[in-house]
Design a protein around this nucleic acid. Structure first.
Lengths: 261, 261
DNA sequence: CGAGGCCTTGATGCACCTCAACCGACGTGG
DNA sequence: CCACGTCGGTTGAGGTGCATCAAGGCCTCG
């Protein structure tokens, strides 16, 4: 999908990848050679341990823009580590509204919320063509018995997700629209910069409505908040292209509250 | 505290001890005889495994009403399982405001958010005299290597916390005051009923202000929402004593949204 | 008794929602 | 080619739900 390559390619490894309903393809991959190993699950593992993990994480899946990585209600079997691309997770309410619970980029792990019930309780949708590594969860638990440092790191990842959620709760519970948007932009900025991209110049992958859903605001309010920050010369907005002109004043906008982690 | 008894009493049963800086006491305990083992970490373990776990969970701590179980910034070493009582967790912002991130009752596990940084990032404060079991986290990780079902259950507990946080995010992001309060009351009701207490008649342990902080509302708004639900004969409010008169209509109040899990 | 904590209720203001109009980009089909 | 619809975004006008400010009641405690 990234250069228009056919999805239905057939490779001969133990991986026979047909496109399924969820709009993905399967490809062999390995942790040992992955450029994300300092960001992803393998953090802190030695070569041998990475090899064991890589054998478990044998499948790579592609999800095209707009496609589902997983859907609410489906049985949970694997976590997904994002190799490239950008996804959102969202829960669908009975009345059709959907609430975005997170935006996810390379090196992040998806599916942690499904461990408890073994059923996916949210949808994961690609906001741009994406590739993920599939990590069968029971196998991950098995090898984490022989690789204690992997287990420890996995626990930290889950814990970090809880911390992140708490900071979003704080945002939703006590910040004004402009503060929320500032916090959101700074969070994106930091995550882009951690991945080697510019911290002050990036493209949003999501619509105003998705941002609003995540921040507990209506899309018009998000748009107005963007305009206001631009009027103050703190950022420059050109549709989805954002430049942060004065990151310190953007931080001031958040008031005394701490940023989304 | 409850009846004005001195705190520094020294009794000779397995029930006493000295008050330390964090206002707690240390006592020997065991999972094998704990009435909460179907609710707490030991879920699904056999007798031998419970024994191993019980040996690790050797200390019981008491926290008086208003006392800290742990404080933000302190080094994380143990998880805490609540044996009795009721606690809140909250983060303190730079400007002095505090936001409640959760209310916690018997059988629930505290400290999961501190695993990632190994530093407590929130305060845990007892809302009534409470007892907790202290679970040294590195030991828990060690024994979960030899008790895979413990590891699996622990992962589910962490995952459940993430699910819970997502449902609170949904509440904060999209529900009106009355819906939030209804959701909150139904959540308490369900958790009380799981523990053998009445689902329709209970006492709140927290103030209106703490409820408001948790729900992203001001205390006056919480108070008005209580009054409104009472005016409609859905609940009866007598200060902290709540009776749910019509649980179905209370559920309707939440709209189509799902409850806090 | 007075002080302080917790709660309730009323009056007022404002931040955000809602509704609506409009714009530009893009794709489609006559 | 242009007409047209759709989608995402911006902006304005008006309404409203909640915050804010303020007063007063109840209870406990010293």
């Amino acid at each position: 999908m990234i250069n228009g390559a056919p999805y239905l390619e057939n490779n001969l490894l133990h991986d026979s990848s047909q496109q399924n309903l969820l709009d993905v393809t399967h490809i062999k991959s390995s942790c040992a050679t992955c450029s994300l190993r300092e960001l992803c699950l393998p953090v802190g593992l030695n070569d041998q341990e990475i090899q064991i993990l890589g054998d478990v994480v044998s499948h790579k899946r592609k999800v095209r823009r707009g496609g589902y990585l997983h859907q609410s209600g489906l049985k949970f079997q694997s976590l997904f580590a994002i190799r490239s691309g950008f996804l959102k997770t969202c829960v669908l309410e009975e009345d059709g509204r959907q609430q975005v619970t997170g935006f996810h980029m390379t090196g992040e792990l998806l599916g942690l919320d499904a461990i408890s019930s073994e059923i996916h309780i949210c949808d994961a949708i690609a906001l741009e063509d994406s590739e993920v590594c599939e990590i069968p969860f029971t196998k991950l638990e098995e090898i984490s018995i022989v690789i204690p440092s992997l287990m420890r790191h996995f626990h930290k990842i889950m814990s970090r997700e809880i911390v992140r959620d708490h900071s979003v709760m704080l945002l939703l519970g006590s910040m004004k629209a402009e503060e929320r948007l500032a916090s959101f932009l700074l969070n994106l900025s930091r995550r882009f910069s951690m991945r080697g991209y510019s911290e002050s110049d990036f493209n949003l992958r999501m619509t105003r409505e998705e941002i609003g859903s995540y921040l507990g605001l209506k899309l018009e309010t998000v748009s107005r908040a963007f305009s206001k920050l631009q009027d103050e010369n703190i950022i420059t907005v050109d549709n989805k292209h954002i430049q942060i002109n004065d990151i310190n004043r953007l931080k001031m906008k958040m008031g005394n509250s701490s940023c989304i982690t």
